Amino acid sequence: MAGVRRSLRHELLDLRRSPRFSERGRTDPVMIVASELLTNAIRYGGERATLCLRSDGNGCVLDVTDGAPAVTPKVVRGRPVAEGGVGLVLALALSSEVGWYVTARQKHVWARFLPHAM
């Protein structure tokens, strides 16, 4: 996981250098959401989780996949943090938009970040 975080941080820093993005932006919200969604993907979908960061010129989309399309993501509110289950809550709070979809073999959970949130 440390290697994934390091690679993602480098990608985000490169993205922030683009003139399209505000210098006031921060990479922390994207890193937090990436860590939470990837942890969920590994916990519920096994070791075949992937993380992809895409920029469309108007922010970025973080897309995390796992091998458990039958396991529906759930937003759990009011649970003590120590019990887990806060990944999607954090994603909803820190990103501009969150969603998920399934294919025959994978589940994708994604979060969009606008430039000011980065």
Rank of each mutant, 00 (worst) to 15 (best):
V102N: 11
A68K: 07
M118V: 04
V71P: 06
L13M: 05
L51Q: 04
W100N: 10
V86F: 11
R79C: 08
K107S: 09
Y44A: 05
C52I: 13
E47F: 06
P115T: 03
L13E: 10
A34G: 06
A70C: 02
A82I: 03
A49Q: 07
S55K: 02
G85W: 05
F113V: 06
A41T: 00
S96V: 05
R5A: 11
H116E: 13
M31R: 00
V64S: 04
R112C: 03
R112E: 08
I32W: 02
C52L: 14
L53K: 06
R43A: 13
P29A: 09
T65G: 03
M31Q: 06
T103W: 01
D28A: 14
L15D: 09
M118S: 00
R48D: 14
G87A: 15
L92H: 13
E11N: 03
V71A: 13
V30L: 01
T65S: 13
T103F: 04
H108C: 08
L51V: 13
P29I: 00
S7Y: 05
T50A: 10
G59E: 02
V81S: 07
Y44Q: 12
L51F: 02
L38M: 13
L92S: 11
I32R: 10
M31K: 02
P115R: 08
L38C: 10
P29R: 11
N40M: 06
V33H: 11
G59T: 11
H108R: 11
S55G: 12
G57Y: 03
E97W: 08
G87D: 10
T103C: 06
E36N: 11
C52E: 15
H10V: 00
P29V: 06
W100M: 02
R17A: 11
V61P: 05
G45S: 12
H108W: 00
G3F: 02
A68Q: 09
L37V: 02
R9S: 06
M1W: 02
V33A: 10
G67C: 14
V102R: 15
L53I: 07
S22K: 06
A2P: 10
H116S: 09
K74M: 14
G84H: 00
I32Y: 06
A111T: 07
L92D: 13
R77S: 14
V86E: 10
P19V: 01
V89P: 01
W100V: 05
P73H: 09
A93Y: 03
R105K: 14
T27L: 12
T65L: 12
T103V: 10
S95W: 09
G25S: 15
S35A: 14
M1F: 00
L90P: 02
I42F: 07
A91Y: 00
V61T: 15
G57Q: 06
A82D: 08
G57I: 01
S55V: 07
M1T: 12
L8S: 03
R24A: 13
A2N: 13
V30G: 01
D63H: 11
T65Q: 13
